[in-house]
Design a protein around this nucleic acid. Structure first.
Lengths: 224, 224
DNA sequence: CCAAAAGTGTTGGTTTTACACCCATGC
DNA sequence: GCATGGGTGTAAAACCAACACTTTTGG
């Protein structure tokens, strides 16, 4: 019997802003799961690569320009989609949420950033996909530097600290954290300062892209 | 236009025996690439899961019963297969090569264990898949214990040492290695000994499965 | 008794942890 | 001047890397 399997891609896109990590979800315009929240994605065209398909769907449905994208996992359970056998190659993305405006179109009735501890009910097996993406995000911080893809270009050290605290879900020692990060030699300290209303103004830092990506390649061992 | 993409699975299966790591390959019986070596695999049936498909193809083509299987990566380049758009979900497997007899059938004209530094030319993009699998195998030893799935049930410590030396591609300090491994507390020392012809007989060890899998779950940081 | 592989401890250097006070600013 | 967040050093403990000789067997 002829194979009748269809191929889709989905993208779990994370953003970080002022102390919380959010995920980009769309409200589905059509059945199945019309009116329910879902991870953005859709069918792959015959002549495009998987990455092209993800970027196209994200652009079409949400207006997001992706900053970092990697393959997460392929979900192939025969029963995962009520329309028939549809397998999905899930991707994992990171963006600076402030860098653009999201808007809904094509299959999306609405687009929204959800904090990862305030998620709505999801369509299909998207909860499973999202859970896997979250655990991948968490484990990434133990073997590579993280932040460039999520933080603004210039940021106070405390932003990075807050990002790690959020991802780890626990407090960290500020002094030791700063020493460890600075020793990685991926941050350049700027002479600009920023004041957050009250308290001493903070020095701004930026990632040194070259050393950052070099370190990603080399890998690190990083116990905070 | 209707989507016309087909879905296949491929499995890179590693085995370890007397100091070398080998990969299971088949010689293709049919075109394209008839007579060339390839990673075992094939099309997914409409109603089977991806894992079922991998295990079925391995059984059919090679007779191998797999011991450990994980998803590796999904290859979706539109040009990767001359027959049309075929995407492949690649898996990564480990077996005890001595535990059974391999034999060729269905699409395979021949099956053979190749040492990973003596590989033949491969069909499709299988070299890329295999290279990725090898680097995954190598990186696995830095974040989880490894050996249970590759070594015999009972083995002298030197077998484990040789496995690590082979995977790392360099010599390691025997004393420090032994200390580090024993500290992980995943090996049970047996009172049996085995003699390899000449030299002092070695004590046999076995993995304590419970603690081994617990440690896999927890993860380790392991610089040899 | 020789060759071959197995087994085993100590030391110095490095890294990691734990921990608390002063600084610069806005109000 | 006080509340707020930013910035900083040190000492003890844990961990890691380097290093070589003795033991047990087979021939």
């Amino acid at each position: 019997m002829e194979q009748s399997i269809k191929l889709s891609v989905d993208a779990v896109v994370f953003g970080y802003e002022s102390g919380t990590i959010s995920v980009l979800l769309i409200k589905r315009k059509y059945n199945p799961f019309k009116g329910k929240w879902a991870i953005p994605g859709g069918f792959v065209l015959n002549d495009e690569s998987l990455e092209e398909a993800v970027e196209r769907e994200l652009r079409e449905e949400t207006g997001v320009q992706i900053n970092y994208l990697e393959q997460l996992y392929t979900f192939g359970n025969p029963k995962r989609d009520p329309r028939g056998r549809i397998i999905s190659v899930a991707y994992f993305g990171l963006v600076h949420p402030n860098a653009f405006k999201i808007y809904a179109s094509t299959d999306a009735e609405e687009v929204h950033w959800f904090k990862i501890n305030e998620l709505p009910e999801l369509s299909f097996d998207h909860k499973e996909i999202l859970d896997l993406a979250i655990s991948r995000l968490q484990s990434k911080i133990t073997y590579e530097p993280l932040g460039f893809e999520l933080l603004d270009e210039k940021f106070p050290f405390s932003d990075l600290e807050k990002l790690y605290t959020t991802l780890l879900g626990r407090a960290i020692d500020r002094r030791n954290f700063r020493k460890k990060i600075l020793k990685l030699n991926v941050l350049d300290e700027l002479s600009e300062k920023v004041s957050k209303g009250s308290g001493r103004p903070a020095n701004l830092f930026k990632f040194n892209e070259k050393r950052y990506f070099q370190l990603k390649k080399d890998g690190i061992v990083f116990d905070i």
